[in-house]
């Protein structure tokens, strides 16, 4: 089989036209999902038992069932109820794009809430007590001490989650959103050239995720305490590596 450069170039151009939709799906669902996750984790660790159980139920529901089924239920399932079709939310729920964003955001919020909770649990209690002893409480304590420390420790898990989200945007093609994967499938339906088209699509996702990984690694480095004299602590950097030989 010879490589058809012209076809691949043409495919890439077509796929790149769908890139804004993929990026919109990704950015909107990560942003909404993160805000929702903050709310869920706040409920999850609050003092009221009923709210804690509510948050736990939410996490169980959206982590425990397939994202694809959640998306189908939201897009195809809800429209069967006349009440939904007559509700003020219908203009939003009618659109495949907004349904995909909502489904992605609801699902990722369940995962992110657990990631954030892990970050909160990783805050050393001594540092919280030191804050209390200095007269901090409530929002001040959260803003100055707990959140910055928690954020740092949950960043690696959070970046994994948003990489998964970037790839999960491809599911939106199954509720008729023409993002990169959707367009790829349309090209395949027209040309029957599965291999080249999907390879092109995979390449685009790889490049996008490469950029995300680099950006988050930069953020992680920026948020980590550094030695003011030695810019890179040579031993600590490799503290987790396994000695060989």
């Amino acid at each position: 089989m010879s490589v058809d450069i012209a076809f691949i170039g043409d495919t890439l151009v077509q796929l790149l036209h769908a890139l804004p939709i993929t990026l919109l799906l990704f950015a909107a669902s990560v942003a909404v999902g993160t805000l929702l996750a903050l709310l869920v984790v706040w409920l999850r660790v609050c003092d009221v038992a009923a709210l804690r159980h509510l948050a736990r139920g939410y996490i169980f529901l959206f982590r425990g069932s397939p994202l694809l089924i959640q998306m189908f239920l939201l897009y195809y399932g809800l429209s069967q109820f006349p009440e939904v079709r007559q509700s003020p939310f219908w203009p939003v729920l009618r659109e495949p794009l907004s349904c995909a964003v909502i489904a992605l955001a609801l699902c990722t919020a369940g995962y992110m809430a657990e990631i954030f909770r892990g970050g909160l649990l990783a805050v050393p209690p001594q540092q919280i007590e030191a804050g209390r002893a200095a007269g901090m409480s409530g929002w001040l304590l959260a803003r100055r001490i707990i959140i910055p420390i928690a954020l740092r420790s949950c960043l690696p898990a959070y970046s994994t989650e948003i990489i998964l989200m970037m790839k999960a945007t491809s599911l939106a093609s199954l509720v008729t959103v023409y993002e990169v994967s959707g367009v790829a499938q349309r090209i395949i339906a027209e040309t029957y050239r599965t291999l080249e088209v999907f390879l092109c699509a995979a390449l685009i996702y790889l490049v996008l995720n490469f950029l995300i990984v680099r950006a988050l690694a930069w953020l992680e480095r920026r948020l980590s305490p550094r030695h003011p004299v030695l810019a890179c602590p040579t031993t600590k950097k490799y503290a987790l590596s396994v000695p060989r030989g």
Binding site: Q127, A133, G135, P148
Partner: peptide, 19 residues
């Protein structure tokens, strides 16, 4: 919150804010 700083506390495990 007002009275705690009047009673400064020094801990066994320091509790310096790591960030």
């Amino acid at each position: 919150d007002r009275m705690r700083p009047e009673l400064g506390m020094v801990f066994q495990s320091f509790g310096l804010w790591s960030h």
